[in-house]
């Protein structure tokens, strides 16, 4: 087997473009998904069961169906319905963040519920409102506990962003497929693609570990 580095070099500009878009999809979806996930997690924990129900349904739907199917429904169904035309960028970010939000909500809920009840009681006994206690006492502690699980979720999200190649969003996987189609060679395109994803997830892991260490020593 001869491994043709020159073909990879030819395709490097496309891989670069694809990588940047993959980073864009991932970062946007991590941010939106985390914010949305926190809100959904808080919604799930509302004491009023009726108010909490829609948030539980949301989590059930997005965790219980394949991301690939969600991408199709959002891209061919919802996005045209709302903006009158398809748009791979909107569809990609929407699908990835909505999906990720369901997992973040569960991570967040677990983080809060793992805290000792006495923390909330102590805060409330000092006259703090429920919201103040959440803001100053509960969420900062829960967040610290959430970081490893959250990191896992971010890494899954970076890898899952490759699925938006099916709606022809020109990200990393898309260019891997394109190169394979052009040269009919399996190794160069897909190993390169895999290698770049590996770098991205390793960088993400490194940053999170650094954050974890910094919060641990605080």
């Amino acid at each position: 087997m001869d491994f043709r580095f020159d073909l990879i070099a030819n395709y490097a500009p496309f891989f670069l473009k694809g990588t940047l878009l993959t980073i864009g999809f991932s970062v946007a979806s991590i941010i939106l998904g985390t914010i949305l996930g926190l809100l959904i997690g808080l919604g799930e924990m509302m004491r009023n069961k009726k108010l909490a129900a829609p948030f539980r349904v949301y989590v059930t739907l997005f965790r219980g169906t394949p991301l690939l199917v969600q991408i199709m429904i959002i891209h061919f169904g919802f996005v045209p319905l709302f903006i009158g035309e398809t748009n791979v960028y909107i569809s990609g970010i929407a699908a990835l963040s909505l999906n990720s939000a369901a997992y973040v909500a569960e991570i967040f809920r677990a983080g809060i519920q793992s805290l000792d009840r006495g923390q909330m009681e102590a805060a409330r006994s000092l006259g703090m409102t429920h919201v103040q206690a959440m803001q100053h006492v509960i969420i900062p502690q829960a967040f610290k506990r959430m970081i490893p699980a959250l990191g896992n979720e971010f890494i899954v999200l970076i890898k899952d962003s490759s699925l938006v190649s099916v709606i022809a969003a020109p990200e990393l996987m898309y260019w891997g497929n394109a190169m394979q189609g052009q040269y009919y060679r399996p190794w160069e395109p897909y190993l390169t693609t895999a290698f770049i994803y590996l770098i991205l997830t390793m960088v993400c892991d490194f940053l999170l570990r650094k954050l974890e260490r910094r919060l641990a020593t605080e």
């Binding site: 006495g118 923390q119 102590a122 805060a123 006994s125 000092l126 006259g127 100053h136 502690q141």
Partner: peptide, 26 residues
């Protein structure tokens, strides 16, 4: 509750805050 202080069996100090911050927070 501002007028009714409470001390718990298991202390329930806020572990993410320093001793001073624990006292200053409320």
């Amino acid at each position: 509750r501002e007028d009714v202080g409470m001390v718990f069996q298991l202390f329930n100090l806020f572990p993410h805050k320093s001793v001073l911050e624990n006292i200053m927070l409320a």
